[in-house]
Amino acid sequence: MYPSRFRYEAPRSLDEALALLAEHGDEAKILAGGQSLVPMMKLRFAAPGVLVDINGIAGLGFHEETAGGGLRVGALCRHVDLEHSTVLPGAQPTMAAAAPLVADPIVRTRGTLVGSLCHADPQGDWASVMLALGGSVVAVSPRGRRTIPVGEFVVGTFQNALEHDEIVVEAVVPAAQGARAGSYLKLERRVGDFATAGVAMALESVGGQILRAGIALTGVGPATIAATEAAEALVGASLDPDVIDRAAELAAAAARPRTDHRGSADYKRHVVATFVRRMLTAERAPAGAAA
C-alpha cells in the first residue's frame, strides 16, 4: 500500500494527544484499531496529514460493568475483548450477540468499538447496538468533557458530531430499567462482508412488562437508523403475534435501503422485518428455544 504522505505521532498520554489535535486541527486523524482508516488511506480515499496513534496511551482498553446493568467501554477496547468478555454474557445480551458478528476474526483483534462508532459507517454494527441500547459516548477536549448520545453523535454517512480537537475516550451503556433482553442479527454474504441488513434489539422489562425498547438498523440507509416507532410499539405491550408483526412492519418501514449488489431495497426491508420477527419470537418462546 502506498498512501499519501503523512506524519505519524504516537502520544503517550491523553493530554499529549489533545495537544496534537489542537495543533493540527482537521489535518489530524486519530488512529485506534485502524481497520477502516488504514484501508481508506491505502486507497487514498483518506489522506490525513497527521496520524495521532492513541495505542500508546494507557488505561483505554477496559470495559466494565456499572451499577444497574450499565457498561463502560474504553477507546482501545478491541472487538475481540468484547467477543471473549466474561462481563457481557447474560448482562448485555445485545452486545454479546453482536460482538462475534463484527467483521472477521482478523479485524476483531485490532478494531475497536469506539472507533467503529466514530467512523459512523452506516454498515457499522456497534452504532446500531449502542443506538438500540440508548448508549452515548464521552468526548474530551481542552475545553473539558461532554457526553453525547449515540443518536446525536452519528450525524450522517461517515460523519460524527466531534469537534476537531475532541477525542472519544469511552462509550457508555446506561443502567437498565429491569432485566435486559435482546439480540443482534445480521445478514452478510460472507464473513467480513458489509451487512446486507442488520437489526439490533434491546429490551428492558420487569415481570414480563417491557419498560424500554430500542431497535436500530444496520446497512439499510445513509446512516444508522433508529426504528423508534417499532420500538415504541413494544413498550408496555406483551409479545403477542400481532404486536410482533406490527413492530416488524414498523421497523421495515423505518429502513431506507437502496438497491445494490447486496440486494434489492424490497429484499432488505423484508430482511429487517424477518429479523425483528425472529428476535421477538425468540424472546417470547420459552428459554432455550431457537430463533
Binding site: 445478514l187 454474504r189 446486507t196 449488489h261 447486496r262 440486494g263 434489492s264 429484499y267 432488505k268 423484508h270
Partner: peptide
C-alpha cells in the same frame, strides 16, 4: 445465487 435473488 445471492440470498436476495433466491428469495425473490
Amino acid at each position: 445465487l445471492l440470498p436476495d435473488r433466491v428469495w425473490h
